[in-house]
Design a protein around this nucleic acid. Sequence first.
DNA 1: TTCTTTTTGTGAACGCTGTTCAGAAAGTGA
DNA 2: TCACTTTCTGAACAGCGTTCACAAAAAGAA
Lengths: 230, 230
Amino acid sequence: MKDKDTSGTRAARLRAASQQRRHHERQEVRAAILKASSALFLERGYQDFSLRQVAEQIGYAPGTIYLYFKDKDDVLFTILDEGSAHFGALLLEAAQIAEPRERLVSIGRAFIGFGLGNPAFFQLMFMQRTDYWVRAAKAAQASSADGEPGRAEGAGLLGLFTLWRATIEDAMKAGVLRLGDPSAIADVLFSLMYGVVAIAVVMPNFDQKRIDAMIDATYEMLRVGLHAPA
Amino acid sequence: MKDKDTSGTRAARLRAASQQRRHHERQEVRAAILKASSALFLERGYQDFSLRQVAEQIGYAPGTIYLYFKDKDDVLFTILDEGSAHFGALLLEAAQIAEPRERLVSIGRAFIGFGLGNPAFFQLMFMQRTDYWVRAAKAAQASSADGEPGRAEGAGLLGLFTLWRATIEDAMKAGVLRLGDPSAIADVLFSLMYGVVAIAVVMPNFDQKRIDAMIDATYEMLRVGLHAPA
DNA sequence: TTCTTTTTGTGAACGCTGTTCAGAAAGTGA
DNA sequence: TCACTTTCTGAACAGCGTTCACAAAAAGAA
């Protein structure tokens, strides 16, 4: 913590480089924990995911993990943070379409595609550990009160709700969507996408053909099902 | 296992009554386990629900529960069986409306009402332990192959999918629903109801007003959103 | 280099979990 | 009364998340 005036000396430069290397090594161990956790979670499922196995996998004692993460949820939520950042980027990219109706479908496609492509992830984030969103919502509230102090990734996804509602509003203004409370309709359509993915991922008696038909019907619904009367 | 010809004697009658009483006592302990489990689950949540605490609550040693249930999941799934029987009866009752469009809304109202009224239940059954449906689907498959041997309650709920699709078909025939693949549309609308409940139950930043607006919009969608073009 | 301080890792320990099982206890039937 | 069956116990096992005193290693200063 003492700042001696040693800038420029060989010793100082050495010390700085050393600190940087140590920082790097620390991040590497941290990344190894996250990678092993991710892999273990994906192949054994959330219920059977244990920190002890993660520790064994990467050749550390169980206690070591606690030098890098506060607890098990900290590991899990860090993974979810990264995942939802990726998810959010995907949705944002899908929203880069001018025509409102096609933008709706494009976002829907991105959402459903991600869910079906990462079912374990989707289940953990949206079905099993929904308290993740409680934390994310709190973080969002805190960072809107303050001047954006710590970026919580989950809060980013929550922010995309705004984008989604804006798309609905645009579609209404453009006359391609039946008029109504944009906020409520945005929530309903979001619930629709969420539900379709959840059902597809979870229901054991839904075969691939049935899932495809359901999803096609969902896109169709976004496209023409809510069309404003001619 | 030996059947001596002792029917009618005092001893035989006494033996029969004794067996019946023992059976009754056994069912009582079983019921006590289920009741305590249910209560504990409802107040502490699924994650913190433990058989040892159930045992302590009803004044038995932990091992005793295993004389009445195979394992923890057996207890949990038995509770879910009872819950889904209740749920199924509710949906069936809601379906007793002749007019197809109103029947759609009525079933939707029953579904959403149950979900919002029993959030812990809904979450456990539809979000956290979805493998319950895997077992239910297997049971349904088995009981349709054989001559309905053991009734699995979960399978009963699965059977309501048929009722739901039939309602969609009726609505299409009556001209109050846009034409399309009834099966796919039934699945989509089911997913919609599911999603609305899940979002309402889970999302921390949805206040009551927002939930109400979303649900009203959902009913509106069932009622007129998919209306056949005039 | 040598000594001190800080960082990193260990592994035993605590308290919890689900589950099993030998043996005690209680009840049944003759 | 006595043998037999059912019910129940509580100790034991393996596994979990988490903590902590201690060891090892590395860093920084002299």
